[in-house]
Structures are given as structure tokens and as C-alpha cells.
Write a protein that binds this DNA or RNA. Structure first.
Length: 203
DNA sequence: TCCGTGATTTCC
DNA sequence: GAAATCACGGAC
């Protein structure tokens, strides 16, 4: 169980997005350890990617973190209600990132359940368990990732990834989700997921 | 399958 | 100021 070092996050964003699959996302909050295995990611290739917040070199207070060094978190709010968790890739000045779309909950299932539903894990039905963290907004709520988790160094002690040597799966790719406005970029197969994992948000 | 929710950022 | 937005849950 080794914490991933910064060089893991630095480099080609499409490669990092695939390498992230099977890794464990850990959030230490209020003395508790919440974690889940990453099963679905999407790559956002900055300047040339119409679906990215940083398309065309757009640089604002919100996107500033993407221009920094790799291995930092980029958490943004969407539709006024939900957060999405991204990992900044590439070197300083290149605003690319990987969106974590879904995880399989691993540790402290009861805390994750309370965060999501205000109900204990043992009271959940099958559908509720499946829906715990199978989407970008859901996993942020479940793992308690919000505004205060933005701009964190993933090489620190609060929010980080570990390698549990989970390699026994095959990777599928597909079009990204929810970006039909992005014209030709909407068809790029930059979504990656673990085949046959029930926590993947869509097939 | 569709629609209301609802806040932050960005664009004009 | 207005529009747009990398979702979700519940009503049909």
C-alpha cells in the first residue's frame, strides 16, 4: 500500500487517466479514513479541448490551479449543488486534468453512507449501495470532498492516492459524458473505466 | 424519460 | 445582469 508520488501524476493526461484506474483514493477527515477504488476517469486536455474549463487558455480564479504543477486537486461546483473532483496533470503552465467519475467504496462504508443519505450502511437497499459513489457528484458527497478540498497537494496527508496493486481488470474507453456542447471534442474517447465494475456510472 | 433543483463562474 | 453549466433524484 504505497502512496503515489508526484511523478505519477505528471505527464500525458490520457496515460495518467488510465493509470489512475484501480488506485485507491483516500480522504482523511475528522480523524476518519474514507476511501474508494477509482473505476472511472475522464481526461481533459486543456488548451485544445473544447470540453475543458481551460480551453483556449482560459485562465480565471477557478481554473488557476490547473496551470500549476501536477498532483494537486481541482474541485469545482456544478449546477449549484454538487462538487466534482479532478487531479491536475502535466507540468506548470499546461492546464490539463483528469476528472474522477466513479469509485468503488472500500473503507468506512458507514461514514460514506451517512454522508450520502444520512442513513447507516446496514439500512441501505441494493440500489442505494450501487448509487453510493457511482458518479462524480456522488463520490464527492460520499467521501466528503468539497470546496475546502480544492487546491490540495495530493502528496500531502489529507487527500491522496495509494497503489493497492489492484491490476486484475481490463480497461475500456468511451466518449466522455455530458459535454455535447463541445462539438468535435464530444466524440473523443477520453473516458476510461474498469470493465464489468458495477460502480461505473454509465456503459 | 423528463424535469426541477439551485449557486458559482463566466460572458456580454 | 444574464446565461451557462464535465448531475442527481424523484416524478411520470
Amino acid at each position: 500500500m504505497k502512496k503515489l508520488r508526484r511523478d505519477f501524476y505528471c505527464g500525458d493526461t490520457l496515460s495518467v487517466a488510465q493509470n489512475l484506474l484501480g488506485k485507491t483514493l483516500v480522504h482523511i477527515t475528522e480523524g476518519k479514513r474514507l476511501s474508494g477504488k477509482i473505476v472511472e476517469t475522464e481526461a481533459y486536455k486543456g488548451i485544445t479541448d473544447k470540453a475543458a474549463h481551460s480551453y483556449g487558455g482560459r485562465r480565471t480564479k477557478r481554473t488557476e490551479i490547473m496551470y500549476g504543477p501536477c498532483g494537486f486537486s481541482y474541485v469545482y461546483m456544478i449546477y449549484g449543488m454538487y462538487y466534482c473532483f479532478n487531479i491536475v496533470t502535466q507540468k506548470k503552465g499546461v492546464p490539463e486534468a483528469v476528472l474522477i467519475r466513479a469509485v468503488e467504496p472500500l473503507e468506512n462504508l458507514n461514514e460514506i453512507s451517512l454522508n450520502r443519505y444520512d442513513k447507516s450502511f446496514s439500512s441501505l437497499n441494493k440500489t442505494q449501495i450501487k448509487n453510493l459513489t457511482n458518479g462524480p457528484g456522488k463520490l464527492c458527497k460520499g467521501l466528503a470532498i468539497g470546496k475546502s478540498e480544492n487546491k490540495l497537494d495530493l502528496c500531502g496527508g489529507t487527500l491522496y492516492l495509494v497503489d493497492d496493486n489492484s491490476n486484475d481488470f481490463s480497461i475500456k474507453n468511451a466518449k466522455r459524458i455530458g459535454i455535447s456542447y463541445a462539438q468535435e471534442a464530444a466524440d473523443y474517447p477520453w473516458r476510461f473505466y474498469i470493465e464489468n465494475n458495477i460502480y461505473v456510472s454509465a456503459k
